[in-house]
Design a protein around this nucleic acid. Sequence first.
DNA 1: TTCAGTGCAAAATTTTTGCATTACG
DNA 2: CGTAATGCAAAAATTTTGCACTGAA
Lengths: 166, 166
Amino acid sequence: MPATQGEFRNADTKGLKERWKAYLNDKRLNVTTQREAIVEQFLKSTDHISIEELLAKVRRRHARVGYATVYRTLKLLVDSGLAMERHFGDGQSRYEVAGDHHDHLICQSCGLILEFEDDEIEQLQEKIAQRLGGFTVLRHRHELYGLCPKARGIVGGSCPNEQSKR
Amino acid sequence: MPATQGEFRNADTKGLKERWKAYLNDKRLNVTTQREAIVEQFLKSTDHISIEELLAKVRRRHARVGYATVYRTLKLLVDSGLAMERHFGDGQSRYEVAGDHHDHLICQSCGLILEFEDDEIEQLQEKIAQRLGGFTVLRHRHELYGLCPKARGIVGGSCPNEQSKR
DNA sequence: TTCAGTGCAAAATTTTTGCATTACG
DNA sequence: CGTAATGCAAAAATTTTGCACTGAA
């Protein structure tokens, strides 16, 4: 598997796999080739992957894996804290790898999703948490909903995601 | 501002209704009793309402309103910016009234929820939207998940909601 | 009167479940 | 071997759509 680009983002996959092992062990669940394949592909994904996309990836190596198994395994991943379910209004459930958190800018017109990170904001969050009584921030969710230039009707405004609606 | 847990909830309903009127007018949509009833009930709701709950409320006054109309009207509400779709892990789509833009700090141990607002962050959001291609931010969601001092065992006290998970 | 909007039921999606079969431990 | 896990297909659950009818303008 080409670990290709940015390991700057994709959190420590090895560590996550260990957490997965520990989870299986703790819950007395079996290690099956399907589960391994699904988890492998899931952890490899860098952005928010849908069930369909995940299944497609898994089937490239293991045809004959069914939807049900993906759904069931994803549920385990969420329960174990390795996956987080997300929705962006397009009717699809998507999942992101824990520790690979990023924030989002979502166009309400075309559904385009951009990611962002901002240290200043991260720091302000800490400050706020302090101000509100000394909280410890473990994770956060920050989403901006708006309109991309094109959706606003700007000339030459671009909207990378101009395809299907559903 | 009153940082107290005072429930001055429901944002300016009158103003929202005006925005609704303006939206209908702008889009040349008809004013129908069904739409009015649905919008009325929706704006009246304080928390995240599901299609089913909304339909139930509407039907108390106007039996014979169908699911389709609720779905269609809710789509208009989202498009007009008056409603925002939300998902929790329960497979149901829920909607919240746009308006009160306060963000949340949530204790994962005791469930305590504090609200906050921060101008600096608001401004940074705009900056980010610009940086990412000139988006217009219509609304946002910002949630911090963490542990309150008590949950961390600072002062011997116990947390407000030490019970269920979900 | 006209045609957007509605209700209803059928269709399309997305997710879950039952059960015989497979394969992990 | 015993039984958890899988695949498949059927069942649920959720959302959308087609169409004849209703009612707002």
